[in-house]
Design a protein around this nucleic acid. Structure first.
Length: 513
DNA sequence: CTTGGCTGCCC
DNA sequence: ATTCTGC
DNA sequence: GCAGAATGGGCAGCCAAG
């Protein structure tokens, strides 16, 4: 199979909107793909390097795009080899050596192939045929039911590994595949809600939502491995937890969240925690603290399918109780409200709300888990706006927000947001902002600070980048305040006040014993 | 040896 | 991580 | 109801350049 054929297919897929049509085109294409090439062809289509990220982004690769066009044909198996090679290159001059390999490859390609490969390497393939569509096509090609395929992918946790297995072994692969301990799987995720009125009317589990790092802890005999939300092995970053658990009875897989505590057992702010935890080498930290809320495997038995309530009971009997997340089970909305308020008071992000009878759905965001998070409103002004890309082409779609400075005669930046506006509002705000333009830039425009927007955000962080010294976390625009002028917006003193109050709240936390 | 750009990965 | 949109 | 696209702040680590 030639690379050119894959690129051509991708181009055709881009132009098709019907899912069925995409699937049948893909399916007839995949039938022509050799057993050994299956993995790399699918990898090219979904834009995921089977050997992992190679440390090259657009800035490093852009020069390869301007080479003189050629038209030799390159086999996908050659691409496969090169991807493997790139992954191995490390150390001094590595950038040069990587680009050198790519240079010899790119010399043989035409412009379309080059553009495609660059997008592939930086993880920006967008042809409207991602894993979901490929899954349907594979199911059709190999006559496997979609549900079974789903199950296998979730159990193995690695999409391309499953694709390779199916190409090489067909239906036999399906029969012998099952969940194994130490093999990470994607986390179950939650949908956001904004008010308790959105709750289903039934008895529910509510848990504190702590602002830390999601972890999966696998243990068998004395061996422990810890994985992150994106399946990275972070055992070394959390060695204290691994050591602690290796002495606990039983084999199991746990789902939880980890934070650091200061000397008074208060949770450190997210930024401070990241500074310590993400270091490769660091001193032992006594107050590293995991909280667990789920168990998916115990002593040889998989627990994905049993109800949440039962998993919680098993979890309670498996680990020391002070490592369980704070949790209540109730159908009383007032109780939930008080639980939420208490969680916020203690400096947490909010609460998780879970259906008691729901299984653990690996890797999917369904309605069985909900999250309710705290946020603040502020009126701010737009200082700059950036042109959007892709489906946002032609709109100003990313806005630098500012607050008033102390003397009330200027504005200070607090970070950007691209969230909250509908397509219609983007059209509208683009028109308005263009009338306020001071200066054209390659990336967008600088505007007179006159458009006031109401912004919701979850937290204020210290910023080493923005002039104000602060930045908003998870900012989104709630509405355009046509009624307000820029001298009525939030001041930097207000920002600092909220920041300090938040930190004080963190000081109030004491759920440890 | 220091600085700064880029990447990957936390949220 | 959040948000909106198209299917 | 879900997947996909567009894009946020900030950290450490790695490498290139000065």
């Amino acid at each position: 199979m030639k690379l050119k054929e894959v690129v051509l297919l991708a181009e055709r897929l881009k132009g098709i909107s019907s899912i069925n049509e995409k699937v049948s085109l893909l399916s007839s294409f995949l039938k022509r793909v050799d057993k050994e090439e299956g993995k790399v062809v699918v990898a090219l289509l979904i834009g995921e390097n089977p050997y992992g990220k190679v440390g090259l982004g657009y800035q490093s690769l852009k020069n390869l795009l301007v080479l003189k066009e050629s038209n030799e044909s390159v086999e996908v198996s050659e691409i496969d080899k090169i991807l493997k090679e790139l992954k191995k290159i490390k150390g001094s001059d590595s950038l040069y050596r990587k680009l050198n390999i790519l240079y010899y490859l790119f010399r043989k390609l035409d412009d379309k192939e080059r553009e495609y490969l660059v997008n592939f390497l930086i993880g920006e393939i967008k042809i409207g045929a991602n894993k979901g569509i490929i899954k349907k096509a594979i199911a059709k090609t190999f006559q496997i039911s979609e549900d079974i395929l789903d199950e296998i992918i979730l159990k193995k946790g690695d999409f391309l590994q499953v694709i390779e297995g199916i190409f090489k072994e067909g239906k036999n692969y399906i029969e012998k595949t099952d969940f194994e301990i130490f093999q990470p799987f994607s986390p179950m995720l939650a949908n956001i809600i904004y008010s308790l009125d959105e709750l289903p009317k039934e008895k529910l589990a509510c848990e504190y939502k702590i602002d830390g790092i999601r972890i999966f802890l696998h243990k068998k005999d004395k061996e422990v491995k810890i994985f992150s939300r994106h399946l990275k092995d972070i055992t070394n970053n959390l060695f204290e937890i691994a050591e602690y658990f290796s002495e606990i009875n039983g084999d199991f897989v746990l789902d939880g969240e980890v934070v650091l505590l200061d000397k008074e057992n208060k949770i450190l702010p997210f930024q401070d925690m990241m500074k310590i935890i993400s270091r490769k080498e660091r001193e032992r930290f006594e107050n590293i603290r995991p909280f667990f809320f789920d168990i998916l495997y115990k002593n040889g038995e998989k627990l994905f399918g049993i109800p949440n309530k039962e998993r919680w009971q098993i979890l309670s009997k498996t680990i020391p109780n002070n490592l369980l997340i704070e949790r209540i089970e109730t159908d009383d909305k007032d109780k939930i409200k008080r639980f939420y308020e208490e969680s916020i008071k203690r400096g947490n992000e909010g609460i998780m709300i879970k259906k008691l009878d729901s299984p653990y759905f690996i890797g999917s965001r369904k309605k069985y888990w909900l999250k309710l998070k705290n946020f603040y409103p502020l009126d701010l002004v737009i200082l700059e706006a950036e042109w959007g890309h892709g489906r946002r082409k032609g709109w100003l779609s990313n806005f630098l927000l500012g607050c008033l400075n102390r003397e009330r005669n200027g504005f200070l930046p607090l970070g950007k947001t691209f969230k909250g506006l509908s397509d219609k509002e983007f059209t509208e705000i683009t028109k308005i902002l263009l009338t306020k333009k001071i200066e054209d830039k390659e990336w967008g425009i600088i505007v007179r600070p006159e458009i006031v927007v109401e912004v919701f955000f979850s937290e204020i962080e210290k910023s080493p980048f923005y002039e104000s010294g602060y930045a908003l976390r998870f900012a989104r625009i709630n509405r355009i305040r046509y009624d307000k002028n820029p001298y009525e917006i939030a001041t930097i003193d207000e920002i600092i006040r909220i920041f300090e109050e938040e930190r004080k709240k963190k000081g109030e936390i004491d759920i440890f014993y």
